[in-house]
Design a protein around this nucleic acid. Structure first.
Length: 597
RNA sequence: GCCCCUAUAGUUUAAUGGAUAAAACGAGAGGCUUCUAUCCUUUUGAUGUGGGUUCGAUUCCUACUAGGGGCACCA
């Protein structure tokens, strides 16, 4: 509803600006920073004062007078104030109408059509096939899935995709580690051909009662150690890669088995997180295809061949980027080579309008080079390709400094483990306070733990580096997902205890009371979502929810809602619309609500 | 050497070029016979440094300082 008000205002202001001589006005209406400045304001008077050679304050006054004469029914007042802002004050009726419009919009409230009928392919969380998902992966996943949900809310059709780099030395190390360290008895030889005939002599994750992803990363660490310490192992691992490339049957069999553990492990964590890929690319399926693009590029003059046979880009002149090799002098391809092929594959398979890569900032140059090369080859326009980088996740060490996670030192913090720790804290509290039936505690705590952990990562800007501190993440007070969840539960509880809600029974107040601030906050949700969509970042939504919840709790403490008065139904409408807003906001963050806690 | 990112209360974080820089944690004071106190009210306290653009700069430009990342046959 607020959106309609703003559209009308924008139209009128734009019209007025054209009349006073602005050729192509851009009208920005933003939320006022303080209640005393109304609900919304515009800076057009200051913005166009110079162009019109007028005093901004006079211009603002003229605009305010013009709008007053229009007598727009949703406006209680329009004022012009120093140094040239024009402030808009909505009528109580207009605000109440907005509250009711939230209820009729339901789970669509906040959505818009800014990217309607566009097709987006968003790549995120391409995990190493040799590592269990740690808090770094968790962050990427939350950022990526957040963008996926935002673009869906913007009306776009979205394909979320991921890549498994399932070939090469890393996976071979896991394969070796498995043969050498996952035998049931020491006497079993570390030999792939023996394994092929006696698989039952090796354990599976299921038999060893280890989560498959953890099983794989532990196996990798063991294989890696042997690889670095023993030249014979190194040779043997490298031979596996060669055998794999030569399509050796037994090697492929072991490779498939190890990968099945990897996929099972990741799928388990993805399910827990509520994360999902619509499409998974496997490197082994497309890694050879890049070479054709290199030959094509050579023909078109996009690339050039060096004396030693390697092929290099020509990006310096047109793009100001440093050049890089796309084909090695031994004729084999590189990451960039594969990415070219995959980009074309994505674009043609899904007829994608926009492609997004959620990958680390260290790949910034690589991404720019990829985009430029794809443009040169006619695969697509650079503007349609977006790299979304993010800040690193390190650990907070005892002295307060930042430390890198290291699998060698055993300091890697797994996503699973963090969620489990928070979950334990919550269950303990349930037990201490004897809350919930014992058999329900587990399920409720799981949802709350997910909410707490996800919210903790996602409430801040994605470029902000994080020094993770488990103590801090277990703390569920303050600016946390549980605070938001608690507020939602509170609202649900009130609704449950009420005699039922009926829109017909809502008396529109002629003046707002204690609920004014809360109702004001409800006006801004759509705007916040729109901004999140523009920025490809859900953290604005998280910050907004904290504010909304704070307003709600403030009101709750001051005023009794179920008071049997003639305002009760009106107050219930507010409670209900707050609940809808929280639920929609949390849904954008990938957090599902519960009704009791 | 060149390029990119980051710098905000004691701590962890907010702020499409706008009005008095916003929260949480910590520390101090107060509040449950109550619709769930995982809450509410209140006090305390910050834009790395120097220039510039602008009516207005945490935000843009520039030079420093500090930290991180990248720079052709690695992934």
């Amino acid at each position: 509803m607020v959106r309609e008000y703003l559209q009308q205002l924008e139209f009128q202001i734009s019209d007025w600006l054209k009349n006073v001589g602005v050729s192509s006005p851009v009208v920005l209406i933003e939320r006022s920073v303080d209640v005393k400045f109304g609900e919304f304001s515009t800076n057009v008077a200051m913005r166009y004062a110079k162009e019109l050679k007028k005093n901004p304050q006079d211009l603002a006054s003229d605009l305010a007078d013009f709008l007053k004469e229009k007598r727009l029914d949703f406006l209680a007042d329009v004022t012009a104030v120093q140094p040239g802002f024009v402030n808009f004050y909505l009528t109580p009726e207009a605000k109440t109408k907005h509250v009711l419009s939230i209820l009729s919009a339901g789970n669509k409230f906040g959505n818009n059509e800014s990217h309607k009928s566009e097709k987006w392919v968003i790549e995120h969380t391409s995990p190493n096939p040799n590592k269990a998902m740690h808090i770094g992966h968790l962050r990427i996943n939350l950022i990526g899935m957040g963008i996926v949900r935002l673009m869906k809310a913007a009306g776009a059709e979205v394909v979320a995709d991921g890549i498994y780099n399932d070939r090469g030395i890393s996976i071979a190390k896991v394969m070796y580690g498995y043969l050498a360290h996952r035998k049931k008895t020491e006497s079993t030889p570390t030999d792939i051909h023996y394994w092929a005939l006696h698989k039952e002599e090796w354990v599976t994750p299921l038999e060893s009662d280890i989560k498959p992803d953890v099983f794989v990363s532990d196996t990798y660490v063991l294989g890696e150690q042997d690889f670095s310490n023993d030249e014979r192992v190194e040779k043997s691992v490298r031979q596996m890669v060669v055998d794999w490339e030569a399509n050796d049957e037994v090697t492929w069999e072991l490779w498939r088995q190890i990968l099945s553990y990897v996929y099972e492990g990741n799928e388990r964590v993805f399910q827990r997180l509520g994360s999902h890929w619509d499409k998974v690319w496997y490197e082994h399926e497309h890694y050879q295809k890049g070479k054709d693009y290199v030959l094509d590029g050579l023909e078109k003059g996009v690339f050039k061949k060096l004396e030693d046979g390697a092929v290099i880009t020509k990006l310096e002149d047109d793009y100001g980027l440093s050049d890089t090799v796309v084909l090695k002098n031994d004729g084999t391809s590189l990451y960039l080579t594969q990415d070219i092929a995959l980009t074309d594959l994505k674009k043609t398979t899904y007829k994608a309008d926009k492609l997004v890569w959620v990958v680390g900032p260290e790949q910034s140059l690589h991404m720019k080079q990829l985009f430029a090369v794809c443009e040169q080859l006619g695969i697509g326009n650079r503007e349609d390709f977006t790299h979304v980088p993010y800040g690193k996740v390190g650990l907070k060490s005892a002295d307060g400094s930042s430390a890198k996670m290291s699998s060698r030192d055993g300091t890697v913090v797994l996503a699973d483990d963090v969620i489990d720790e928070v979950k334990e804290t919550i269950i303990k509290r349930f037990e201490d306070e004897e809350r919930h039936q014992p058999e329900n505690r587990e399920e409720i705590a799981e949802k709350l733990a997910l909410a707490a952990v996800k919210f903790g990562f996602i409430k801040m800007d994605k470029m902000q580096d994080i020094d993770f501190d488990i103590e801090h993440s277990i703390d569920v007070h303050g600016d946390s997902g549980l605070y938001v969840m608690y507020t939602f539960v509170r609202a649900q509880s009130i609704l449950r205890k009420s005699a039922g809600f009926d829109v017909e029974g809502v008396n529109q107040p002629s003046e707002l009371g204690e609920e004014a601030e809360l109702v004001r906050s409800l006006l801004y949700f759509e705007d916040v979502v729109a901004k999140s969509i523009d920025d490809l970042s859900v953290h604005h939504v998280a910050q907004y929810l904290l504010q909304l919840c704070s307003d709600f709790n403030g009101w709750y403490a001051q005023e009794s809602i179920l008071d049997g008065s003639e305002r009760e139904m009106y107050k219930l409408a507010i409670v209900k619309s707050v609940a809808v807003t929280i639920q929609n906001g949390l849904a954008l963050l990938g957090i599902s609500t519960i009704d009791e806690m």
